[in-house]
């Protein structure tokens, strides 16, 4: 009972209820077919599995973005970083880059993620040391990133022929799609990290009031640097999944406009866009909501472009809910109490 109470108060409560609601809605309109999961060649197939597989990129990004937003910042360069990471991985595997490691998927992955982290470090450096506003600082890489990716691939859409690389998106372990494991491992790792260290507390504190946090002994600059590095690495991971999915690197379209979805996931998860307390699980729920809405809209036979309309309305609704001004107007009593 007490656990239930705690759950109801948690940030993840509403997003998870909404997610389940969407699933339920789908089940009803599809007369149960939605939930059906079939087993073929030892793999599970079904809409639900698709949601988790297709949503895995967004879930990774949402985790990185959650940290950045909690620190009071924003990172609009994640889509470009995805393009860079895919370009690097594919070029390495084909041997265009570091011919010595040609075909080494492992090295390709390490290099791609390292490149993502490096991009993040650049963003973090501009934000925490040069003290440029986060949106402006990450704008630079957002503009440059796709260009850099194109230069790596020499402006071509390159394809790779490597089953082990395909495995990142298309593979199965114990019947479940591989990218889901990536999400789960990262999520568990982060949960462990935030539970076993005081990182979460320091991050929230820095995002709410960086002056107080500094005086209390928190190294605010380092915390901020770290979240951008992590966000960059997470974006690189998402880029690898995407690139593996299309079996190559398409720098023009990889992760195009996905930064907006990532920010939206964090917001739908009920995390304040102004920074502070955060919930990773809630952001992941937010990502799943976006993904399941997409799936629903496809399933209902509605033209997919409507998804963006829905997203637009969602963004406005959520901002209005979070807006203090509106709540003062609607709930004067509550405002007065504060």
């Amino acid at each position: 009972m007490e656990i239930l109470q705690k759950y109801r108060r948690a940030r993840i409560f509403w997003p998870s209820v909404i997610f389940l609601g969407i699933l339920l809605f789908n089940t009803i309109i599809s007369k149960g077919e939605f939930l059906s999961i079939t087993m073929m060649d030892g793999h599970f197939y079904g809409r639900l599995v698709d949601i988790f597989r297709n949503g895995s990129k967004l879930m990774l990004l949402a985790m990185g973005m959650t940290f950045v937003i909690a620190s009071g910042g924003i990172d609009i360069s994640v889509g470009s970083v995805m393009a860079i990471s895919g370009a690097i991985a594919c070029s390495v595997i084909r041997g265009n880059l570091f011919p010595f490691f040609q075909g080494s998927v492992f090295f390709a992955l390490v290099l791609a993620v390292a490149a993502g982290a490096l991009c993040g470090a650049w963003n973090g450096f501009l934000v925490s040391r040069v003290r440029i506003q986060p949106m402006v600082a990450t704008l630079i890489l957002m503009v440059a990133g796709r260009g850099i990716a194109q230069l790596i691939t020499n402006g071509k859409i390159i394809t790779v022929n490597s089953p082990s690389y395909y495995f990142i998106n298309g593979g199965y372990i114990l019947g479940l799609p591989f990218p889901l494991y990536l999400v789960i491992i990262l999520f568990a790792g982060l949960l462990f990290f935030t539970k076993k260290t005081a990182f979460g507390l320091f991050l929230a504190s820095s995002g709410i009031n960086d002056k107080s946090s500094r005086l209390a002994g928190i190294r605010v600059e380092n915390i901020k640097l770290l979240v951008y590095v992590f966000c960059g690495a997470a974006a690189a991971g998402a880029g690898l999944i995407e690139s593996s999915g299309i079996k190559g690197a398409d720098c023009n379209n990889a992760g195009l406009m996905i930064e907006l979805d990532a920010i939206l996931s964090v917001a739908i998860g009920g995390n304040l866009l102004t920074g502070g307390r955060f919930s990773l699980g809630a952001s992941i729920c937010g990502a799943l909501i976006i993904q399941s809405i997409t799936t629903t809209i496809y399933a209902m036979g509605v033209p997919p472009e409507v998804i963006q309309l829905v997203k637009a309305l969602l963004v406005i609704t959520i901002s209005l809910i979070q807006s203090e001004k509106l709540s003062i107007k609607l709930l004067p009593a509550k405002a007065a109490a504060q």
Partner: peptide, 29 residues
Amino acid sequence: LIVKFDLQPFIVTLAGLFFMRALCSVISK
């Protein structure tokens, strides 16, 4: 919306971006 409810311009115009792009495809792909 930005001025009246004190919302972040980036977020509001982000919604605008989605909205208009969607209208485009609704009209003709």
